[in-house]
Design a binder for these strands. Structure first.
Lengths: 234, 234
DNA sequence: CCAAAAGTGTTATTAATACACCCATGC
DNA sequence: GCATGGGTGTATTAATAACACTTTTGG
């Protein structure tokens, strides 16, 4: 930080945008809102906004936006800073630098479209990334970065469990991996791997009999947040 | 991004700070400047500054600051965004959000203290992180994040070579790993690992005879930027 | 010759992969 | 019983770890 004085500092607006990912109906999906004003009127965009006040912390702003859009508080959910995007022409109106956050959430009943928030919808990321028309600003690039971050974090952390309900089976967790990575995993080897890593899964003692076949053990997320050795995609 | 209009947007200053790491004299070191004004007068701080103009891209601003401080251009050097720090009270004067960048550079002749830049010095990160007094703002935390990012990136990328000169030996590269990780590595296994990964190192055909003992083959950084399987710290 | 550093070979251990097989439920 | 999904055992392969040993220089 240099010693330049305040009068030399250009005026720049700071926004906070959210890339909220979930696994729903066998797809990796992202929460998007339809823009109601120009620019990019009618285009899909990441939910977000400007700081609520000059005193609001940016992490707090992200958590607030997330609660407004999904109704979720910070428990059973993961929120981390992704990256800051600050190309000078990314917003045609004025200079806006946006601090983007990545959130991983379980399959929610639905995003509640209430209050002043726009109606939000879950959109498959495959569709967004392949035919990326109708995406506002540089949000397609942001989504690509968010998805890559999520994919890589599944390799060496327990964040796959953020997509699961509080109590889940090994198969549910494996399905999350398969959907996020777009790749089949051997059920038997995956089972052994995640159950052998110390404190990765915490057995509840309960069983799930929801599907046909032999009942599955139910687990909670364990205390181990890192997975060593990692599960590599290959 | 919401549809709030500009008059609701709080005014926040955006800074760009640099965590420039190098390996020098057997230590991992970071480039720091001594502050000449309040607040934190006389304390060590990361080099950085505000955007040069309202039209300057933040990545460009980081590259410009880096060139000003080190004289290095973007070749034979790595520069990536680290994280954005935006706690409301991190600067007592006014609200400042800083976008921090991580740079990895080879052992330079010296940082040139010329023009309007303050005199910069290389400070061992161990010293900074252990007895972190005299660090301005939240820069100690930023440095800790930068070091952890650098350490983890050595595991699965070729960024260790960013600390090396354009042409280097396997032993020089291993020494970089040992210093950054603070851990000894088996010379033989390391050699086999990095020379076996396809396109990780590009042989020059030349040999180095600088040290005693058998001359070492000289390599350039290869085209492979990711290391699979990774070299894990354990 | 000796010391020092570079590099190869070899073995043991560990982890990943592939797949046969058994287990426990619903119907 | 039979289909279905859950879970274990095991052989194969690949990667890591540990270390003996050879190579090539300088003195």
């Amino acid at each position: 930080m240099t010693d330049e004085t305040a009068w030399t500092i250009p005026s720049v607006a700071i926004a906070v945008d959210l890339a909220v990912l979930t696994v729903q109906s066998g797809q990796l999906r992202i929460l998007l809102v339809r823009r109601g004003i120009e620019p990019f009127l009618g285009a899909l965009a990441l939910p977000g906004g400007f700081l609520a006040s000059e005193d609001e912390d940016i992490d707090t702003a992200a958590a607030r936006e997330l609660a407004e859009e999904t109704g979720l508080a910070s428990e059973q959910l993961h929120l981390e800073q992704l990256r800051t995007y600050g190309a000078p022409d990314r917003d045609p109106r004025r200079r806006v630098v946006t601090v983007c956050y990545l959130a991983l959430v379980p399959d929610l009943p639905l995003p509640v479209a209430g209050g002043d928030a726009q109606a939000a919808t879950w959109v498959p990321v495959d569709k967004v990334l392949r035919r990326g028309r109708a995406l506002a600003f540089d949000h397609k690039k942001i989504i690509a970065d968010a998805v890559e971050r999520a994919r890589s974090k599944l390799e060496y952390t327990n964040l796959g469990t953020a997509f699961c309900p509080p109590v889940f089976t090994v198969t549910e967790l494996r399905t999350v991996y398969e959907i996020v990575w777009g790749q089949r995993l051997d059920p038997r080897n995956f089972h052994r791997k995640v159950t052998n890593v110390e404190n990765f899964l915490e057995p509840t003692g309960e069983q799930s009999t929801k599907n046909g076949g032999r009942p599955a053990m139910l687990y909670r997320r364990g205390s181990a947040t890192v997975l060593y050795p990692p599960i590599l995609r290959g």
